[in-house]
Structure formats: C-alpha cells, structure tokens
Design a protein around this nucleic acid. Structure first.
Lengths: 205, 205
DNA sequence: AACGCTTAGGTAAGCGCTTGCTTATGTTGG
DNA sequence: CCAACATAAGCAAGCGCTTACCTAAGCGTT
C-alpha cells in the first residue's frame, strides 16, 4: 500500500508503542522521539503532526490485519473451513501485534474527521470479509444464522477484544487461543459437527 | 458499596463523560470542571487527583455491571437459562452505560498500581460468575465445553467489545443485540436446542 | 581529483499555551 | 457559628510544534 523509509519506520514503531501504552492523549511527542532515539524535532521531519502519526499507525495496522485475513481465506474449500482460517488468522494477528492492534482498535476516536473516514472504510472492508463468508455458508446450508451482520460483528469481537488484556510475553498461548476462537466462531454460525459423525453428538444427549 | 454526595456525583459523571470521549490522558481537569459546571478547583474539593477520579469511575462501573449480572442470574432454573439471563444483563448494561463502560474497560492501564489491584479483583469476580455457570452446565451435561476459562473470556467479549463502537443514540437496538448475544453465547457453550425437538436439527443435516 | 550543488536526516533552542494541582479567600444553608 | 462547598489567581512543569542551523552522502561537471 504505502512504503516507509527506515527512518520513518523507526518513528512509526516508537509511536505505536507509546500510543499503545499511554493512549494518544497521554503520549507526548517527546516520548515518541526518545523511544525512536531522536530529538523531538526529528519527528516532524517525517510527519506533519502527532495525529498524522496516529493515522499512519492505524492505516498500516488495518492494512496488515486485512491482508492476513485475505491470505488466510484463499486456501479453504468450504465456508466452515474458510470461516475457520479467517478467524484463526485474525486472532493470531491481533495476538502477535497486540500493541499496534490496541492503537488501531481503541484510538479511532482520536483521529481527525478526514482520517476517520479513511479508517472507517478499511474497517468496513474487513467486516465485509466475515459477512461474506457467513452469508455464503448460510445460503449453502452449512451455517444457520439469523442476523448475519450481528453475528459477523460478534465473530470479529472474539479477536479484537483479546488485545484489551493480552500481553505479548504470553505469545506461547497464541496458538491455543486461536484454535479456541475458531471452534467458537464455527459454533456461533451453527456450523454442524464434522459430517463423518453427525449423529454421535446428538445421540449422546 | 460506596455512597457519593450529589456534588461528588456530578463531578463523577462529568469525568466519566470526558474520559470516555477523549481518554484519560486526553482529558484535562478543566474540561471535567466545565462539564460539571464548576471551577477547576472544585474538582479537588471532592477528589485528590485526576487519577483518583478515574479510580472512582472504574470502581463504580464495575460494581454496577457486577450487580446487574448477579441479579440476572437469580431467577433462572437451568444453566442454559442462567447463562442466557447473565449475558442478556451484561449486554444491556454495557449498551445502556456505554460511556462508563468504555472508561471501565479501556482506561485500566491509566490507573496507578494500588488502584489497579482493586479493579483487577472486581474483574476476576465478574469473570468468575461466567466461569461458574459454564462449569456448572458442563458438569451437568447441558453444555459441552473444552476450555472453560477461555470460553468464559470469549462470552464476556461479546458484551464488552460492543462499547468500542456502540453509540448511546442507538439504544433502540439494544434489545435486539442482547437477544443475539444470548443466542450466540448459548451456541458457544454447546447448549443444545430445546429438548422438545432435539432430533429435528440433527435430522435436517 | 576536485568542484559546487542538491537532498535526506538530523539537532539545539525556544515560543506560546496548557497542564495538574495549590493557596488564600469567600459564601452559604442548617 | 461552622462545616461544606465553592472560587479567583497562579505556580512550576510540560505540551505540540517551529525556527534556524548543521552534517553527510550522492551527483554530474570541470
């Protein structure tokens, strides 16, 4: 989408870390500069304002998450499987990039109006990916869903809400959480158990 | 739990609104004072510091949400029903108190260490309510859950993540969203369809 | 090989304003 | 008469951002 020079990236990463820890309003440009190992003025060599930095972090983060989900959806045969790979990818991305994800998800309100529009578009696109696969599965009979948009929102919440508390030094648990989210999402859309043994689960009740 | 004078409450509400809109770091004590219709110094008549105000808002919010869930769990016969009433109550509370809830959920990191401990305790208690009902349902055979703690976390995410985007001028949709969350949560724990027609859903696959 | 010139990336200093919070001083209703 | 509640004024520190200036690397031209 957009390329950054090493110098720009260094400031970008510093800003993401600072925003994630203290919020946009709680972060000073001097803090960002120190984290990037630069003087306060160096920040303004690469970005027009503090809010511009937030916008860059947000757009980059949304792009990355979006791409991860698209790549994941490519190699999946059925709607059930595709929903699974997408939820898996989304969950892993949010866990592995918890700092950036926190900024992306929680600092939207600190953006100025024009930038908000751009980010809102990216969000709609990501939501649409989930809406599409749920609609597809519902139409084919693989799923059983009443409220497609609402269910899509809830499925995304499984990944997103993780970044509220997840700490990056627990990355060893990421795979487990991702697997759990896949199973939960498939249950949420009413994807049946594997067809090889559909009656067993029913018979046991 | 704790009582507040009208004067204290006025400042508390003003702080909740301000923190919710601009974050803790992005809110000035003057902003809070203006919203409360007082002078900047009046804030410090009732609270020792800005962080103390955040702590008061957080504790009050956690208490209210916790009470709502306990009351909801009282009149429910089965684990399925109890999980339903609790998710319903939690969802409604988060939607109706979206401003306070945003502060409660997203400004935890701005608390000082001693206050963080108190809030963490309240959070554990609320999580435990969901863990208990899921464990109960799993033991009785009403549910079918692998990872009880993880599933409880995910069920809570359904309510919590709403406040990230929900606007209070859409409260007419609250009931619909709450009903959807109940259905999703019951699916997540593997609560079967109503026993009157258990085989229909299986036969149709 | 030495030249002048451009460009990218950086800094020290600081301007005008806002911050959290305090102090000294009223002003009320019971 | 005295808590309880409020205020105007302001302090020291920190804020976002700008200005004026510096350095080093890459360039075709002489």
């Amino acid at each position: 989408m957009q390329d950054y020079t090493p110098a720009q990236e260094r400031v970008l990463d510093a800003a993401a870390a600072a925003f994630s820890e203290h919020g946009f309003g709680g972060t000073s440009t001097r803090d960002i500069a120190v984290r990037a190992g630069r003087s306060p003025a160096a920040v303004y060599v690469h970005y027009r304002s503090k809010e511009d930095l937030l916008f860059a972090v947000s757009r980059r983060g949304h792009d990355a998450a979006h791409r991860a989900m698209i790549e994941a959806s490519a190699d999946a045969a059925s709607p059930t499987e595709r929903l699974g790979t997408m939820v898996h990818a989304s969950t892993l991305w949010h866990l592995e990039n918890a700092r950036v994800a926190r900024v992306v998800q929680y600092e939207y309100g600190a953006l100025t109006e024009p930038h908000r529009g751009v980010i809102a578009d990216l969000r709609r696109q990501t939501t649409q990916l989930i809406v599409d696969v749920i609609a597809e599965g519902d139409a084919s009979g693989d799923f059983d869903v009443d409220d497609i948009a609402g269910t899509a929102r809830a499925v995304l919440s499984l990944s997103i809400d993780l970044v509220r508390w997840f700490s990056p030094d627990r990355l060893d648990q990421a795979a487990r959480i991702a697997r759990l989210n896949v199973a939960l999402a498939q249950r949420m859309v009413g994807a049946g158990p594997p067809r090889s043994a559909p009656t067993i689960r029913c018979a046991s009740r």
